[in-house]
Write a protein that binds this DNA or RNA. Sequence first.
RNA 1: UGGGGCGUCGUCAAGCGGCUAAGACACAGGAUUUUGAUUCCUGCAUUCGGAGGUUCGAAUCCUCCCGCCCCAGCCA
Length: 566
Amino acid sequence: MNTEAPSTPSNFIKTIISEDVQNNKYNGKVATRFPPEPNGYLHIGHAKSICLNFGIAQEYKGGTCNLRFDDTNPSKEEIEYMEAIKFDVRWLGFDWQDRLYHASDYFDQLYAFAVELIKKGKAYVCSLSPEDTRAYRGTLQEPGKDSPYRNRSIDENLDLFERMKNGEYPEGAHVLRAKIDMASPNMNMRDPAIYRIKHVTHNRTGDAWPIYPMYDFAHCLSDSIEGITHSLCTLEFEDHRPLYDWILDQLDVPCHPQQIEFARLNLSYTVMSKRKLQVLVEQNFVSGWDDPRMPTIAGIRRRGYTPLSIRNFCERIGMARRDSMVDVALLEFSIREDLNEKAPRHLGVLRPLKVVIDNYPENQTEELNAPLHPNNPDMGSRAIPFSREIYIEKDDFLEEPPKKFFRLSPGREVRLRYAYFITCTHVVKDKTTGEIVEVHCTYDPATRGGDSPDGRKVKTTLHWVSAAHAMNAEVRLYDRLFNKENPDEGTNGSHFTDFINPDSLEVLIDCKIEPGLADAAPGYSFQFERLGYFCKDADSSKDHPVFNRTVTLKDAWVKIAGKEKP
RNA sequence: UGGGGCGUCGUCAAGCGGCUAAGACACAGGAUUUUGAUUCCUGCAUUCGGAGGUUCGAAUCCUCCCGCCCCAGCCA
């Protein structure tokens, strides 16, 4: 344990909850819930909410967090999504134990609450068409008008509602509405619909119900039924809070949870709405919901992000009520931080350039010992083969180097990582194209392992791989999906897809990797030294390994090289 | 122009009337380095959207103004 008091980043929600606990507001209990609608895949924004809700449950003694599917709209929801959501929440490292719930578990109770509301004269069956309902609602600055059905008798409402439940009417014929105030400046209070007719099979309740409760009715009551103390949601539901409270106030409910809103997460260079992510998938801008460029949990996972890195990220971005745009650099920092510590190191060449070491014995091969992590000997080491012909990175050789270029060039000596010092003697070019096809070098046998006995220094160390022993591999280099920091921020009539980065994916099929890496399991996360963190993709086959670049290493050279240019 | 929110460093974000306005990312220098990585130092808001006011004292309280976000689904 640390000696210093943990500097738990405080936020306004924890401040409120701590006060409530201190005041014994809910008998000192803290119960939260994560309530996704199973109509799509979870994204990094949901991760913020998951970490918040489950995190609070962990932080307070006896705290709990339920996983509840808000499955009140069977026309949009699917079992497939429920399974994917459960997988993602678990993968992030959270556990709802035996508290997996569904709003549909409460359909009977919800129906009974609706009947109670009718009996109290607080709800009525309205038979206005959807179009008329809209017309009667008024506008933002003008009050609405009472529905002509607003004063139906309780008995008539009870009868009609029961017949709605019995499936006697077509969709749109009637709707159950809360009787509140058609002149309220808050649109949500203008007699909102709380039940609608939908002759749709529900994936859990089948055809038992031809009517389904609306979010505003189902959510607060589900919270109450589950004994939730703090109902945390995003800012756009703030205007719904009066309705949330109104419903619970009318009914004889187990408890009255407190709704608290926070700002949703926006990440630079990506989009976050389910609708937009769906467009990216459906119009094939990406390969699917788990495309490594997607901000979905599935995509981020396939990209090679770890659960811990995402939890740390969510902790770092904080919690507030102001709209904000978090720099994607913070996400990248979080994954580098985790992988720097944990990822084994390997050697791989993305764009191979052949190097022939002229003074190295023709048919000799030797095994060199290379630690799996230079800063952590406990991770062990592996042997890597070395021979006369090797590959180095094309970027690591320049025939005419600029001032600050430390890498290989004619006459210059560099170190091969964990191998030898080599000095470039000359190059061989393709006669027609002039392209360098081979770099010739000599090596110093005394520098085996990478140390020079005479203490002479070398400016840099290159990664390499033995040509005869290397495995071929496909490497997918990912970059940000959009060129614009905020793709949503359209300039007159532009569409967010206009800002898609055409270079967000570069596929390299002629990569050379150290042998042994081919046997790694899908999901294996490691560092290609000097290049970045990568992970093996599930698309890999026995003789065709595929690697995804999770994130590059920080690279001072690209900055220097960038400055030299203009 | 109805209602509800929000404006503190390039980006997040603490701060809740009283020491020099936390911290992180980013950025810029320097040291160490067999990854131009990591690590390690150092620097980075005399000022809190603006203007007035209250107070011995204001980012924190009051007034006005400016800007941004959300709401007119039988979606969540």
